[in-house]
Design a binder for these strands. Structure first.
Length: 455
RNA sequence: GAGGGCGUAGCUCAGUAGGUUAGAGCGACAGUUUGUGGAUCUGUAGGUCGUGGGUUCGAGACCCAUCGUUCUCCCCA
């Protein structure tokens, strides 16, 4: 038998890690609830059909597919072989795989809304905290199983939702004590740029090239634009667009000049202005950065888009989202607008761990260890322990009669601050010895007073 | 999908140009101490050097393959 191991890109979480992760989950959850979002859970697996084609070509490749059961059935051999042929032709085949693990929380949510739109109370606000899976190659800040925390509003076109979601982001990160900036852009502006550069059909090429700017620099972007048949004049426009600098007001002003009288572009600017202006009064505008190079890979976004970046941290985005105008039409239910955001818990964890931002108070462990000093003594100790547990004090008793040395070490390693010793002498006098491991202070307490003792 | 780094004891690693029986620190266990720990000292256990081939008189070291892991690019949370 070989050594046990984990699938690539997955992890076990020990007690300390779980407690820190729970801290993040609880913080985000409580903010979601404070803003009027209600929980939803969907299955780990979806029909493959539900997921395919929603995340672009790259995304489709990264979906974890589940092999059908019963493929060894001789009666279905023909079907299975045909399925394999399709597979080698680069297509998916329901003969081989009908289900897949969810890739994000947004599409399953859209599927849910499409299935239940008749009975939902619009505008419908839901939050969802569940793992997602991607068949990506793991590296720093990238796992094959990770959690997303999503909040979405559907059935409302109001920009007030965008305003509110910005506040959700900034409130949550403030509570986590993690300094961030929220980048904001608008797909309408990118669309306008594409129009100005010769056609909407260039939007995708354009966004992909723009998205790479801060990584590969302008020269490489220019090269890529050249390859995608953008003319010199168009490249010049794009360069002007990308080199817009200054504070938010200045940037937007320059952009509006560049957009000229392009209707979509001006609308996009107006929307960003609306959100920024709204947050002047909350003071949150300080953490908002208009960034016209922000593109976001998912092409279902149609309006304002967000991305959250931890300040002074070597980490990709720790959250993202935006407005999608018609996501449910993918599932046959048109005209339900929505906007949503997502938190990447695993990356948030990594950044917080790196910067040592977890409060020390979240380590939760046993409060009192009862020593095991023999059959009679332990029985008496057990009764005392149950009384303390009734008072919600976390207690445990060492299960084996062992040397003091060993029992002390156990308490110390587990971070248990108090031990209670009931030995033959104590038992005879109906007493116990309470010892605080940290201070070393030792007190004799009568058994009848123990439940009132201040630990 | 493309390209690098690394796999030696439970953990962190050393192992010099290939040369006898593969080492250290920490940890674990035991004793010093059958009811007061954290220290010191002493001792004990623990390794098919990821796996499979090859080169060589001789391989932990060199070559090939393979698996695992990690990082970068692509893409993304």
């Amino acid at each position: 038998m070989s050594k046990p191991s984990l699938p690539q890109g997955t992890r076990d979480f020990n007690a300390a890690t779980v407690q820190k992760r729970q801290f993040i989950f609880k913080t985000i959850q409580s903010v979601f609830e404070t803003y009027g979002f209600q929980p939803l859970e969907t299955p780990a697996m979806e029909n493959l059909e539900t997921l395919m084609g929603k995340y672009g070509e790259e995304g489709d490749k990264l979906i974890f597919k589940i092999l059908n059961n019963g493929l060894d059935n001789p009666q279905k051999k023909q079907q299975t072989l045909e399925g394999l042929e399709k597979l080698f032709a680069g297509k998916t085949s329901t003969a081989l795989t009908e289900r897949a693990l969810r890739y994000d929380l947004t599409i399953p949510f859209a599927r849910y809304v499409a299935m239940n739109h008749g009975s939902l109370n619009f505008p419908f606000k839901r939050y969802q905290i569940q793992p997602v899976w991607r068949a990506d190659r793991p590296q720093k800040g990238r796992y094959r199983e990770f959690y997303q925390c999503d909040a979405d509003v559907v059935g409302s076109e109001s920009l007030l939702n965008e305003v509110d979601l910005v506040a959700v982001y900034l409130t949550a990160f403030q509570k986590l004590n993690l300094p961030v900036e929220v980048k904001i852009n608008n797909r309408k502006i990118l669309l306008a740029l594409a129009q100005i550069c010769g056609g909407e059909d260039k939007l995708i090429d354009l966004t992909i090239a723009i998205d790479k700017l801060d990584k590969i620099g302008w020269d490489k972007v220019k090269e890529e634009l050249q390859n995608k048949k953008f003319s010199e004049a168009q490249q010049k426009i794009i360069q002007n667009y990308l080199t817009i600098e200054g504070n938010n007001t200045e940037k937007l002003k320059q952009l509006s000049i560049l957009m000229g009288n392009n209707e979509v572009g001006l609308k996009g600017i107006e929307e960003i202005n609306y959100v920024l202006d709204y947050h002047v009064q909350t003071g949150m505008d300080k953490h908002l950065v208009a960034d016209f190079t922000l593109a976001r890979g998912l092409n279902y976004y149609t309006g304002i888009i967000f991305e959250v970046k931890a300040i002074e941290a070597e980490m990709g985005s720790i959250g993202g989202g935006g407005r999608y105008n018609d996501l449910t039409s993918l599932f046959g239910v048109p005209n339900i607008a929505g906007v949503g955001i997502s938190f990447g818990v695993d990356r948030i964890y990594d950044v917080m761990e790196e910067k040592n931002l977890f409060p020390s108070t979240i380590d939760q462990t046993t409060h009192i260890l009862f020593f095991n000093l023999g059959e009679q003594e332990t029985k008496a100790a057990y009764l005392q322990m149950m009384q303390l547990r009734d008072k919600k004090i976390a207690c445990e008793i060492y299960p084996e009669k062992s040397k003091f040395d060993k029992q002390f070490k156990y308490a110390e390693k587990k971070g248990i601050p108090n031990v209670i010793i009931i030995g033959t002498e104590e038992l005879a006098k109906n007493e116990c010895t309470v010892k605080n491991i940290i201070t070393g202070k030792q007190t004799t307490v009568s058994l009848s007073d123990l439940s009132n003792f201040e630990f």
